[in-house]
């Protein structure tokens, strides 16, 4: 009962928040709604007994990823409206087709799932964090290492991309540069 109430409440909240994110013309609304939605999603993870995943969701998504986005948002004037493009009819048809397909797959999934065997069954003797750790560092060790290397590569890439020509000011351009960029835009 409590689970159902919590599920519907958080489902409503996440859908509402993400709708705001997608539909809002104001970048600041979009960002804060997205951050709130990320935190509400962690509630689903807690409901699904994935405590560790829920906490990681809060720390990584809301704590780090969204804060970095917010830092990127300092380039925008947050009080101004964002320009948008109007999608064509084709895309709308394609989208609705995708939705229909997804729904069919979801309804079919219980039929298929009868034959699914749990490869790494959840044991309820130990906590979620330990269970995740055991599987992660035995069966999924190689993907874990690869993910670590990927993060390292991403970190180096981020540093190099962002710090290139850091000594140049982007607000105090000299006149020639402004002229040149005007020509480039034409």
């Amino acid at each position: 009962m409590v689970e159902a109430i919590a599920f519907y409440l958080f489902a409503f909240l996440t859908v509402a928040m993400f709708t705001i994110t997608v539909m809002s013309k104001n970048a600041l609304y979009a960002m804060s709604a997205l951050a709130a939605g990320m935190i509400f999603i962690s509630a689903f993870f807690f409901l699904l007994d994935a405590d560790f995943l829920g906490v990681v969701q809060i720390i990584v998504y809301s704590g780090a990823v969204m804060a970095v986005y917010a830092f990127g948002m300092m380039f925008l004037d947050t009080t101004k409206d964002v320009k948008e493009k109007n999608p064509s009819k084709k895309i709308v048809f394609f989208l609705s087709g995708m939705v229909a397909l997804l729904l069919v797959l979801i309804v079919l999934s219980p039929i298929v799932s009868d034959k699914v065997q749990a490869l790494y069954p959840i044991s309820h003797d130990i906590g979620n964090a330990e269970a995740v750790g055991i599987v992660l560092f035995t069966k999924y060790l190689v993907p874990f290492e690869v993910a670590a290397i990927m993060l390292l590569v991403a970190m180096i890439a981020g540093i190099i991309l962002a710090s290139k020509r850091m000594d140049e000011s982007i607000t105090l351009k000299i006149d020639q540069e402004i002229e040149r960029s005007k020509k480039e835009q034409q």
């Binding site: 994935a50 990823v65 830092f71 699914v116 490869l119 992660l136 991403a154």
Partner: peptide, 29 residues
């Protein structure tokens, strides 16, 4: 992962989070 009693799903979620984090770093750069 919860309804099949299999931890693989959660691990995939972790890897997706890692991918998202690196995507942010590179994308924002």
């Amino acid at each position: 992962s919860k309804y099949y009693g299999d931890l693989t799903g959660q691990l995939f979620a972790f890897f997706i989070i890692a991918v998202a984090a690196s995507e942010v770093a590179v994308g924002l750069g």
